[in-house]
Design a protein around this nucleic acid. Structure first.
Lengths: 351, 351
DNA sequence: CGTTTTTCCGTAAACGTTTACGAGAACACA
DNA sequence: TGTGTTCTCGTAAACGTTTACGGAAAAACG
């Protein structure tokens, strides 16, 4: 058994303490606290005052047990594996928005760490089975995603940042329009005279890698440019991956004049490789990054990138998740919403 | 009230279901599950089998309520404020280690988001008062830290990554030896012939900024170099901060030949500023970064940096926290441990 | 065979809430 | 004054666990 939080009176006060202190029943105290109608105005005020004075706040375990709901939402943070892998700064603003919207509905956000590199539902299973959260938010969705399969089979409510082929259309999802971003990136490069455009994306089954490539291919086709498999490369989704794989496309028989990176970390690694080959991004080869981070802006040369609005997306996904929960759904009942948001181009120096 | 997780039989089974199914009392079921001695071996096996078959796992709310402990530890992730601020990739490997060690003691890690930029204990208060966690881990400790004051006054168990002047010596803490890193950075630069060495650190009250500067000053003094206030600058702890503040030291009356950055994001912004001034890191000015990230390694030129071992630190701080909790303390009772870990130099191209 | 010990299990209380139910008091209305 | 309605509150059960206690049966011992 862990340390009880009792001992210091300031924290230990329960609804019973309030009742005893006021010479009133616990039922009345609870009703007063919860704003029920059947309690005298003066009594309610006395309860509220006493609650403040005794520093009362409800024990969440007791409340959860009684209500069958924890009033907390879990976000699964899934680090990529590998040495010195610092993971996903990407998610901080998203989480900020998510948290903000949940707080408005008096819900807590808890982030659970996934096993680095393991996209299996083990950590998730723990949350679900011990009922630590009422719903889950997933990110880094894969094309075929075990976590989604698990959650839908278990009938546990969830929403995802990113689409997947798993689970059907049974859950809310919000995604960035990677397809359009890939398309527009090609458009932009072609308009600037490029015909040999390389694409570098993560090798994992991450769904956005496929979406990006779809857009890339579609745009090339529209411009009558044949897709050269030698200009498409998959690498591990970090700096090392970009570093390793970029030379491969640059040593293609006909060297590309532009590269689109599907990930900022890969772009950094890729630019490092370019530098070692004596190739200057922005001069000798154009570079566009699909998801912007501060790195892109402060790199030299500053990298042209497509930027999502992560904080609003966090808010929005929370909204969509709540709309899918029976307890929160508005008049029109439980709705499953799926949205795809465009990215905004941040034109800088590298293309 | 939120969606009950009941409905799908696979998830809803309680200890009562097991008891009914086996024609046995719930007390016996609980004892069997918890490995108590006073239960027949055959009975235990039957219970275990049934638990697996009915996919039983204990309801954490019920358990927490009864035991007065949640078996979960909260980590407070405190984002920096500001537009497009992607926060703290730094913490992912640390959290991985923390989580791993906690899991070994069957404890869950939950990350709670702090209000961006607000180092006040509001979000913490919520966790503490509703007893959602049994202890807290803090990072980004400030010199004077309201969160630490709050937790110690409340008598709530916690540990910190990073030291502080608040709260006395009453809590376990693990810190990086920023002082020594600052010292060694100067040492290294002096050995390479530098005498005018700038220091750029975060302007917030973050404690490590002070420790770093202490080491910097001490080393300069040892080498008989007078501290030039014009070579020390504080900026906001992100790329923009480094970008803004670096020109200031470079335009000092006598230009520095080396810069030590106390933060990788600030270093990135700083190098951007240098590039715009036509100053090449590694050629025209030496650059050392105190806390290494993949960015440092893949930047061009690769930035010499001091690297902490974050994952082991996470494990270690979990260990220290557990040792301070009465319920986990070993035979020697409750111990408060404070440790400071050295950094390892990753010598690269920029100095 | 009687007594003591051990083994095993059931009973019930407790953790802190919320809430259905009912009852007493006050009030309105005739 | 009698009856019905409205306010306000207390009672008690329930959520799913764990655990102190006691008792019955079995085993050990003389």
């Amino acid at each position: 058994m862990l340390a009880k939080t009792g001992g210091e009176p300031a924290l230990a006060s329960s609804i019973h303490d309030l009742a005893r202190h006021l010479n009133i029943s616990i039922g009345t105290v609870s009703r007063a606290l919860n704003g029920r109608a059947d309690v005298n105005a003066e009594t309610r005020q006395r309860v509220l005052d006493a609650a403040r004075k005794l520093n009362y706040s409800p024990n969440q375990s007791g409340r959860s047990l009684r209500q069958g709901a924890t009033r907390s939402i879990a976000f699964m943070l899934q680090p990529h594996p590998g040495d010195q892998q610092y993971g996903e700064p990407f998610f901080i603003p998203f989480l900020t928005g998510l948290q903000a919207r949940l707080a408005e509905s008096d819900l807590d956000l808890m982030v659970v760490m996934g096993e680095p590199g393991q996209y299996q539902p083990e950590r998730l299973r723990r949350v679900v089975e011990t009922r630590r959260a009422d719903a889950v938010v997933l990110a880094n969705t894969r094309r075929k995603d075990d976590r989604i399969d698990y959650l839908s089979k278990a009938g546990f409510p969830f929403a995802t940042l990113g689409r997947s082929q798993s689970g059907g259309d049974t859950y809310p999802s919000l995604d960035i329009d990677f397809e359009r971003a890939g398309d527009e990136a090609v458009d932009r490069l072609v308009a600037r005279g490029h015909r040999r455009i390389a694409a570098i994306r993560p090798s994992l089954d991450l769904n956005f890698g496929y979406l990006f490539l779809d857009g890339y291919r579609k745009a090339l086709k529209r411009h009558g440019i044949e897709v050269d498999p030698g200009l498409i490369a998959d690498g591990f989704i970090n700096e090392a991956g970009g570093y390793e794989v970029t030379p491969r496309v640059m040593l293609s028989k006909e060297r590309p004049t532009a590269i689109i990176f599907n990930n900022d970390a890969m772009a950094l690694g890729g630019c490092k490789a370019l530098a070692e080959m004596g190739i200057r991004p922005g001069h000798d080869v154009a570079v566009i990054v699909i998801v912007d981070t501060p790195l892109c802006r402060y790199f030299s040369p500053a990298l042209t990138a497509f930027r999502p609005s992560l904080e609003p997306m966090g808010r929005r996904l929370a909204e969509m998740l709540l709309a899918s929960l029976p307890a929160f759904a508005g008049p029109e009942g439980t709705r499953i919403i799926r949205e795809v948001w465009p990215l905004e181009l941040a034109a800088r120096e590298s293309d």
